[in-house]
Write a protein that binds this DNA or RNA. Structure first.
Lengths: 157, 157
DNA sequence: TATTGTTATACTCTATAACTATA
DNA sequence: TATAGTTATAGAGTATAACAATA
């Protein structure tokens, strides 16, 4: 605490203090930056952040209850319903109700949805790579690994 | 690409594929987690995520134009106006218009605001420390450093 | 003309509660 | 009673555009 707190000298030089080590603050800044990259790279498709992820995961896990996917993606049920509804309206996803539990709804990609994901996968993966602007390859990899661990997803790959 | 794509085996075992390395996806998950921590730790104060940060930075940088703070915090002007208005309504912040540029608005904490930040600083810093659940101290420090660099804030401290 | 901040509007994501239907 | 999903409503954050005052 004996580090002097310097007031501003120039108007673009602002003191953050200990808040610069707040993960919540850093995550918000990073997400704003990542969203900018998302819209710059995939905005022309009319995609919203999160939509492509849901389609992707449905494609990798066909005929799973939507609740299971929502829990894993940390999407609340009410929001998941809306996401799925939009995807169904767009003809990308279809629902089915299994006989063994008629409360649940299974999701799978339609042919159109499968094509959509396949067609845009390169752009998405390129986006993932280009999200890195200031970090070298090794730093970027470390950041991804630490975030995976922070999120309890070490075993994701 | 010759890694086999395994479909689900148990309903809580879901394939993510390459999306597990998407920074945008990981950042969203991490932010959800960090917000949970925020509300668990500071929710009783009626604070919203971001509000304490703004008060903190105003306290460290008194009598700076609100636009300069908003740019640095990546808060859009329209949103900043609302944040400041709520803080003023709560008696935590006061505005002033400098003679040398009567378009701008300078912000500083009121006595009440100064006390509010000082009183809740320990809880906030404790929150920062407790944000780390799955990472050891060194990993956490690395994560913070890499996020600072990603955000162009290496010189923040 | 450009800049600072405000107002108005809308959209995304999140949160909660009440509801239906199945179990 | 509990669970899966839906509907409705609200709030936080963000985005854009139009505007007023000032530079």
């Amino acid at each position: 605490m004996n580090r002097p707190v310097r007031n501003h000298t120039a108007s673009d030089e602002i003191a953050f203090g200990e808040i610069g080590t707040s993960l919540g603050f850093l995550l918000r800044l990073a997400q704003v930056r990542a969203f900018d990259g998302f819209y710059a790279s995939l905005g022309h498709l009319g995609l919203k952040p999160g939509e492509f992820t849901v389609l992707w995961v449905i494609g990798l896990n066909p005929d799973l209850p939507q609740g299971a996917i929502a829990r894993k993606l940390r999407i609340k049920p009410a929001h998941m319903t809306k996401l799925v509804q939009r995807a169904v309206d767009a003809g990308l996803v279809e629902r089915s109700v299994p006989d063994d539990d008629r409360r649940s709804v299974l999701l799978r990609l339609t042919d159109k949805g499968t094509r959509f994901v396949a067609d845009n996968k390169p752009a998405f993966l390129n986006l993932v790579a280009s999200e890195n602007t200031r970090l070298d390859a090794q730093e970027f990899e470390t950041l991804v690994r630490l975030l995976q661990k922070f999120n309890g997803l070490e075993d994701v790959k």
